[in-house]
Amino acid sequence: MSSLPLQIAQALLLVLLAPVAAGFVASVKARLQNRHGPGLLQPWRNLAKLFAKQVVLAENASWIFRFAPYVVFTATVMAASCVPALLVDTPLSLTADVIALVSLLALARFFLALAGMDIGTAFGGMGASREMTFSALAEPALLMSVFVLSLGAHSTNLTTMIQHTLNTPIMLQPSLAFALAAMLMIALAENGRIPVDNPTTHLELTMVHEAMILEYSGRHLALMEWASMIKLTLFATLIIDLFMPWGMVAGPDAAGLLLALVAWVLKIFGLLLALSLAETYLAKLRLFEVPEFLSMAFVIAFLGLLSHYMLEVNA
C-alpha cells in the first residue's frame, strides 16, 4: 500500500467521523442532564435533511455570501487532511506545517466573518466582530503553544514533531504541561465551546459563531455546520498529535493501522468526553472576560516557552 490512498482515506475518515463526534458530545451532555438525547447519528441526519432543503437567500446577499460556505468547508477539509491521524508520515503533512494549518483555519474564519457582515443584519456583524476579536488573541496563543513543542523538535512540521515525541523517552516536561494547558483553552475558544461561546444557545445576544451563520439555510448551512464539526475533530486530533501520539504508526502495515485507528478513536472520544464534562460544569464567561481568558492562554504558552529554555535545553 502506498501512502497516498492512505492519506485520502485518513482525511475522509476524519471528515466522516466528525458529525458522529459532534453527536457523541451532544449525547453525553444529554445523559448528564438525565435524559436520553438524540443519539450519535443525529448530526448526520440533520446534514442529510439540510442538503435536500431549499436555499433561501436574503435580498441583499452578494456573491461572498453564496461563496463563503464552499471556501469555509474546503479550507477546513484541507486543514483536516494536513493533520496526521493514523499515519505519522503522510504526503500532505510533509508539505503543510502547523503555520499553514493555522492559516488555512484563518482563511475559513476570514470568509465566515465576511459572510456574517455581508448580509447586513445586526447579529451577523456583531458575531463577526466578536469572532475576529477573539481570534486575534487566540491565534498567537495557538502558535505559541505549538512553538513550545517545535523548539524541542526543531521543526514546525507535524510529522517531525510527532516523530520527535515518539522517539524521546517519556518523562515529565513542565513546558509540555504549560503548552497542553494553553492548547486546551484555545481549543475551547476556537471551536466556540463553553466557556467562550455556547454552541447550543438560542439567545442571539450571546452568540459568536452561531450569529454569523444565522442567515444560512439548506446546503449552505449544512456545509457551515459540517465544517465546524470537522474543526472540532481536527483540534482533538491536533492535541493528540502534539501531546499523546503514542499508537500512531510510521509505516503502512495493516495490523499497525488497525491499532492506530482504535487508539485514535479512543483518544478522540476520551477528549470529547472531557469536553462534555467541562461544558456541563462550566458556565459561559462574560464576553469581556474572554480576552482575559485568551491572554491567560497566551501567557501560559509563553511560560511553557520560558520553562523549555530554563529547564530542558541542555538538561
Binding site: A30, H36, P38, H202, M207, E210, L214, E215, Y216, L221
Partner: peptide, 18 residues
C-alpha cells in the same frame, strides 16, 4: 428530561432559516 422530544429527532433552532 420527562418528555425529551430531542430523542425523536426534533430540535428547536435559533433562526427560521434553519
Amino acid at each position: 428530561p420527562y418528555y425529551d422530544i430531542e430523542r425523536f429527532g426534533v430540535h428547536f433552532t435559533a433562526s427560521p432559516r434553519f
